[in-house]
Nucleic acid binder design. Structure first.
Lengths: 162, 162
DNA sequence: GTTTTCTTTGAATAAAAATACGATTTTTTT
DNA sequence: AAAAAAATCGTATTTTTATTCAAAGAAAAC
């Protein structure tokens, strides 16, 4: 039970280097490496890692690691990685209005932060535009401020708005 | 049987603008728009469109269109013209939220396209701001998404998103 | 026009994935 | 250290997704 971190890491490895089309298949590969877990656990692991199954060019499905940024975030939450957290110290404030958020940063920090938000490809965020110290982020219509906050919290040094 | 193309197009629309977590849910949304198909068909459609289901930040799952480039390939194979040659080849996607539109372009194309939109002086569009690959366009309050779409269609290689 | 071939689809089913629940372990708080 | 809270995970089950098979429409070939 103590080696979930290593397991997640190995899962990422396996998915990156193999063509895995089901959780049972992954389970077997893991078992071969000494990690015996059930499909239920893998379902939870894959959800946490935000892997997805996509159709391959010919007929089959395979799991992929969708985006290395997202992954790293998730892994960091897990305490997996060595890299220091990429939380933005330039952050100043965030406010919402309608389907938009206005994020203030220290001068010069806006575009970097906006880039990170873009790269996360969070479906809740339709897009961002950054000036020198301000970011406008437009939210999908059905996304509440609270939900959006949770997304932004991944990038901002906000204690925990939950 | 001949309206598979339209159906695929609408599926893409629905997935982009809604938080859909199962094929049955999608089936219901489609039915509300007059397209009655079984889950089996949707499974095949989603495979063809290469959509995937990902975990959201809030513990649920939702379908997404993974990547506009890939998507476009797939759609074109189907003959679903989201984008064609000519006009603005930098165009990637457009989405609405509230009285705003978010237009994604290939990197570097946003300001050129925004300029063209500005220059048309369409009364429906109050103004635009462009970053490197994103345009925010604010719409007059009484303008519907559909109406705005018609305006943008003059600049974008979009067949007819109705 | 007819035959052949390819595509599309639903019903039923198989396969795969997600979760409710409970047990156990770890972590945190007091 | 004890108690409380949180995390991990398996079993069994539910939910969701993919595919098999057959039928029927369209397209192509003849």
């Amino acid at each position: 039970m103590k080696n979930k971190r290593l397991r997640l890491q190995i899962i990422v490895e396996l998915i990156k280097t193999n063509c895995i089309s089901s959780q049972d298949e992954l389970s077997r590969l893991l078992a071969a490496r000494g990690y015996v877990v059930t499909q239920a656990t893998l379902s939870r692991d894959l959800k946490q890692l935000r892997t997805t199954k996509v159709a391959t060019d010919l007929g089959n499905y395979m799991y992929i690691i969708p985006d290395s940024n997202n992954l790293q975030d998730t892994m960091l939450q897990q305490g997996v990685s060595t890299a220091q957290a990429g939380q933005h110290s330039g952050f100043v404030s965030i406010q919402f209005t309608g389907h938009a958020a206005v994020i203030k940063t220290r001068n010069g920090y806006a575009s970097g932060l906006a880039y990170d938000i873009d790269m996360s490809k969070s479906p809740e965020i339709l897009g961002t535009i950054a000036g020198a110290d301000t970011i406008f982020a437009l939210l999908r219509e059905d996304v509440t401020h609270e939900q959006a906050m949770k997304v932004f919290a991944r990038f901002l040094p906000i204690s925990d708005m939950a």
